[in-house]
């Protein structure tokens, strides 16, 4: 939670600097973005665990697939409702809750869609924390994991395990892991369409 506050503070301070000063940071943004993407790649390569995927069987693949299809269709619907070009809407929804990746990637091309991508995915994380405990009263707990997207392997995992039970840990972790591997590839592909 402290880090979330730091992230929001950074965004707010940056916004004030951009709005009220004329300071230029040159290509520091791009350098930081490529550094972050490199570290994400390093972390992905280091932490991929195939044995956990094997334990779960079909559910390990079906659940992330459902999240991908559902998120993209949700984004498509949002594009019609909000009158946002489909490319940007799909890019925003392909973050699957990974706000720290989606925001900067989209901001490379458009500051506004970058901020929407950031906030939409951050909101998804916050809403997962608030609504997972309610969702499992009506929906099977392993299927309700899908609402969290990539966050189910880290930030929302404690909530999911606390309310869904320990047996849900591997399902949630693998779901988040697979989506975490997909998002960094899917967003740039959509943006290049």
């Amino acid at each position: 939670m402290i880090f979330l506050h730091l992230v929001l503070a950074s965004l707010f301070i940056g916004f004030l600097v951009g709005k009220y000063t004329t300071v230029q940071f040159g290509s520091l943004y791009e350098i930081m973005l490529y550094l972050l993407i490199f570290i994400i790649g390093l972390d992905l390569g280091r932490s991929t665990r195939t044995e956990e995927l094997k334990k779960l069987g079909k559910m390990a693949l079906i659940l992330p697939l459902a999240t991908v299809i559902g998120s993209l269709l949700g984004g498509l619907l949002a594009s019609f409702l909000l009158n946002i070009p489909i490319k940007w809407a799909l890019g925003i929804s392909a973050g699957f809750g990974w706000y720290s990746l989606t925001g900067p990637l989209l901001a490379q091309y458009s500051a506004i869609y970058g901020v929407i991508g950031f906030l939409a995915n951050l909101t998804r994380e916050i809403l997962t924390i608030l609504f997972y405990p309610l969702a499992i009263k009506k929906i099977p707990k392993e299927l309700a994991v899908s609402i969290g997207g990539t966050t189910t392997m880290d930030s929302t995992l404690p909530i999911i395990v606390k309310f869904g039970g320990k047996e849900i840990t591997i399902v949630a972790f693998v779901h988040g892991l697979i989506l975490t591997a997909i998002a960094p590839f899917l967003i740039p592909i959509i943006l290049q369409l």
Binding site: M59, I62, L63, L65, A66, T67, I69, G70, S71, L72, L73, G74, G75, L77, A78, L81, L82, I84, A89, I92, S93, F96, I116, L119, A120, N121, L122, T123, R124, L127, T128, F131, A135, I139, P140, E142, L143, A144, V145, S146, I147, G149
Partner: peptide, 22 residues
């Protein structure tokens, strides 16, 4: 816009999870 995207992507995911995973 952010709230709409968050809610619709979550509902879409949940719908397909129930449809396919059920």
């Amino acid at each position: 816009a952010s709230f709409t995207f968050a809610v619709l992507t979550m509902l879409g995911s949940l719908f397909f999870a129930v449809l396919l995973g059920g």
